[in-house]
Structure formats: structure tokens, C-alpha cells
Write a protein that binds this DNA or RNA. Structure first.
Length: 402
DNA sequence: GTCAATTCACATGAAAGAGACCACGGTCTAGTG
DNA sequence: CTAGACCGTGGTCTCTTTCATGTGAATTGACGA
């Protein structure tokens, strides 16, 4: 009986008409053919990189802009075009795109160089070799023939923050050292202040050209959403004013197109799950909440034990305590729970860092304040919406075995 | 009342250790002809 | 003779600890009005 019920459910599901034509167009890994409202930027960047086709070294380029302003999209778009033409004309041009934020790919000097070398078809073990050796291997495969290399480093700020700017210096120097090979760097960052902290030598060479991507405004976001919605949904699915509201939502926090699209997609998914044939504004509100919740749950689940326990301590402290919470209090609580569940407690130094990291993840707010005579500490509070708190608490309890 | 010195409770930095992972080269071992 | 197993060495990487130094403003205490 149960089985029948389930198969009926699935059959009904199949019979039911989906409101989606194709969901792919709303996924973040989809690259549209035409990019709206970025014509100027595309033209500008294309102009800078065009000399490549005459086998001349293009200027190094630096691109800033907040998340979801289309930096990556634009640069990949240009890369594809350039590569296609280069292939047609049989030019020896290599454009390599690397995202420096991806863990275990390009977030250290070794891995960065190794990854680039792999793009040239060189096998490099993930560890075990001296970094110099990897450089040598990389240079060797460059030397083989005359060529131009454009290296696109997405989220360089993350890389530099972790391992310093020496790598960038090395890379800019590389082209002067190897005959026949020209290397240009394209750095992408969503932190505008990033370049200022660079070594002056690196700074001057990396930012020969700079381009700023401004956030999309609400109207532009609407255009983008409409374009995608047209491809993704069946007709008449989108409710009145939905696109406008969605764009407004995203425009409110720094014009993030990615977020706008996600919002639309999740709203539609919710509508579909509820067997409704139209996506309306209420779905948007629900979607916003769901996105936020899912994000936090994902983050919390993926944290190592020590982080979870630290967070758990904060959670308890905040529900028990109306007044502000400080680092010292959390550490005491944390130690108590460590002995309770038999975990070796970390030093306060480390917990201090962990609290800082939890803040970056966005699950807590932690502001460094000075209480004058009573010292300097972090004032900590939860950044989790009240409604998700019980869920998070039970996840932590389960993960920790409290 | 004013002002500089003091003081607290951590924050923040730097360096170094532990342990996991890995490549490489040399040595040993067992199987093969 | 040779392929494969098995070291030891030397490298990276992440997470921590240890030691050291930094820091912002409430408090204190000296000073002068």
C-alpha cells in the first residue's frame, strides 16, 4: 500500500506540468550568450587584451567590483572569444583562468603554480615537491615555444591575504626572465582597498590598467532577470511585480545579480513544490528566508568539531544571557563542554581566532571593543535569525554528541 | 575639574611544532627465465 | 634479472601551541584653580 502511494506520487509528479522550461538558465554556473549592461566594460577589457592577437603583450589588468557584478562572467566571456579567434588564426595564446579562493586548487604558492603548470598539460603531484622544483617545471614547459600567456586570477585578494604578494611579483618577473614568453596578469578582486596594501613594485605592475565594475541598479537587475526568466520559465508563470520585487531585493544589498537569480529560482522551486502554477511575491519572501537558513545550516554542518563547540558555547551563552557576551566567558564555557564530551580544549589564543573566523563566516557578530579599564575583548552576538536557532542548536548537539 | 599615566583583558603577530600527506631514490625480496 | 614492496629522507599543508607585543578607553591619582 505504501509502495503504491509512493509510485502514485511519482506518477503524479511526472504528469504535473513543471513551471520550469529549463532550470539551467537560473543556475549560477550558466553563462548567458549575451551579457546585459556590461557593454562598456567588455569593450574596455577587450581593447586592453586585443594586442594579444598581434602577439604583443597586453597590459596587466586589475578588475574590482563587488560580488555578483559580473566580473567573472565578463572575463570568461572575453576569454572564450579570444581563445576562439586565436585558435582560428593558429596563434599561440594561452589564457588561464584560476579561482584563487577554491580550497585545494590555487590557495597557496605551490598549488597555484602547480595548477597553472597542469593547465599546460604537465603532471604535478599535489604535494611532495619543493616549490622551486614546481617553478622549474612550469618554466620548462613555457620555454618550449614562443607564446603569450594571460593569467586570470579570480579573487586574488584571498590569495594575497593568505600567502603574501611575493607570488605575484614572481609571476610578473617571469616574463622578463624567459625569452619568447610574455605573461600578463589579470587580477580580479571584490575588495577595492586590496591594491593599496600591495608591495609597491607589484602594485605598479599589476595595475597598469584598472577597471571598476559598479553594482547593477534595480532596473538593470530587472532586465537580467527578465532575460533569464524568459528562458527558464514557461509562459505566464511569473506573477505580477515579481521580477521588480526580486530586483529590488537584490539591489538593496549591493546589486548582486547572482543573488537575485538565486532568489528567483528558489522562489519558483518553492512554488512548484506547493503545486502552484504561478510564482508570486509571497514565494519570494519565503525564498529569501530559506536561502538564508540553508546557507547557515550548510556552514554550521561543515565546520570542524572545535568550531562547532565554540559556536555551541556562544549559542548557549546568548540564550541564557541577555547582556553582552565576551571572549573570556565563551572560553570558560567552551572549556567546560570540552571536559564534558571529552575533547582536548584548545588554547584561548586559538579560540580567539576561531571566534574571528566564525564571524567571517557570518554566523556570529563579533566586534572588538575596549571596555577601558576592564580590558579589550570581542563583543559577541549571534547572527542567526531567531527562527533558525533551534534547528542550529539541534544540529550542533547531534554533531557533538552533547 | 583637567590631564597624563596606568591598567585590564584580551587582540594580534610571529615562529615553530605535530601530524597527515606525498614524491623520490635506494634497498630488499620473491618470482621468472 | 627484474618488478614490486618497503624503507628513509625531504618536501608541503593545516591546525595548534608558545611566546611576545599591541591596544583603547575607563580609572586613577597628581596637579592646579
Amino acid at each position: 500500500m505504501k509502495k503504491r502511494g509512493l509510485s502514485i506520487f511519482f506518477e503524479n509528479f511526472l504528469k504535473k506540468e513543471s513551471i520550469f522550461k529549463s532550470k539551467d538558465y537560473l543556475q549560477s554556473n550558466y553563462f548567458p550568450e549575451t551579457i546585459l549592461h556590461r557593454e562598456e566594460e567588455i569593450e574596455h577589457i577587450a581593447g586592453i587584451l586585443a594586442p594579444t592577437l598581434r602577439m604583443e603583450k597586453p597590459s596587466n589588468l586589475f578588475i574590482y567590483g563587488k560580488t555578483g557584478t559580473g566580473k567573472t562572467l565578463v572575463i570568461k566571456h572575453i576569454k572564450d572569444h579570444l581563445m576562439r579567434i586565436a585558435k582560428e588564426k593558429e596563434l599561440n595564446i594561452n589564457i588561464i583562468y584560476l579561482n584563487c579562493k577554491l580550497k585545494r586548487t590555487a590557495d597557496t604558492e605551490y598549488r597555484l603554480i602547480a595548477q597553472i603548470a597542469r593547465e599546460f598539460g604537465k603532471e604535478i603531484p599535489s604535494t611532495g615537491l619543493p616549490t622551486d622544483e614546481v617553478y622549474r617545471l612550469f618554466i620548462d614547459c613555457l620555454k618550449k615555444k614562443k607564446q603569450i600567456v594571460i593569467l586570470i586570477l579570480d579573487e586574488v585578494d584571498q590569495l594575497v591575504k593568505k600567502i603574501g604578494d611575493e607570488v605575484l611579483y614572481n609571476l610578473t618577473r617571469l616574463s622578463t626572465e624567459i625569452k619568447n614568453v610574455e605573461i600578463s596578469l589579470v587580477g580580479i578582486s571584490n575588495n577595492m582597498l586590496f591594491v593599496d596594501n600591495l608591495d609597491p613594485r607589484v602594485k605598479s605592475s599589476l595595475s597598469e590598467e584598472e577597471i571598476l565594475f559598479n553594482p547593477y541598479n534595480a532596473l538593470q537587475l530587472q532586465d537580467i532577470l527578465r532575460q533569464r526568466a524568459k528562458q527558464a520559465f514557461k509562459k505566464e508563470v511569473i506573477g505580477e511585480g515579481l521580477i521588480e520585487k526580486c530586483a529590488a531585493f537584490a539591489a538593496r544589498d549591493h546589486g548582486d545579480a547572482r543573488r537575485a537569480l538565486e532568489l528567483l529560482r528558489v522562489a519558483a522551486e518553492l512554488a512548484e513544490r506547493k503545486n502552484e502554477i504561478k510564482v508570486v511575491i509571497e514565494h519570494l519572501d519565503l525564498a529569501e528566508e530559506k536561502i538564508e537558513r540553508d546557507k547557515i545550516v550548510d556552514i554550521v554542518k561543515s565546520q570542524p568539531k572545535q568550531f562547532q563547540l565554540a559556536l555551541y558555547s556562544i549559542l548557549l551563552a546568548s540564550s541564557k544571557n541577555e547582556t553582552q557576551i565576551f571572549t573570556g566567558e565563551i572560553y570558560e564555557l567552551y572549556k567546560k563542554y570540552c571536559s564534558k564530551i571529552g575533547l582536548r580544549p584548545l588554547t584561548q589564543r586559538r579560540i580567539s581566532d576561531i571566534i574571528a573566523e566564525l564571524e567571517i563566516l557570518g554566523v556570529i557578530n563579533a566586534k572588538v571593543i575596549s571596555k577601558g579599564r576592564y580590558g579589550r575583548t570581542r563583543e559577541i552576538s549571534l547572527a542567526i535569525p531567531f527562527s533558525t536557532k533551534p534547528e542550529i542548536e539541534s544540529i550542533l548537539k547531534e554533531g557533538l554528541g552533547v
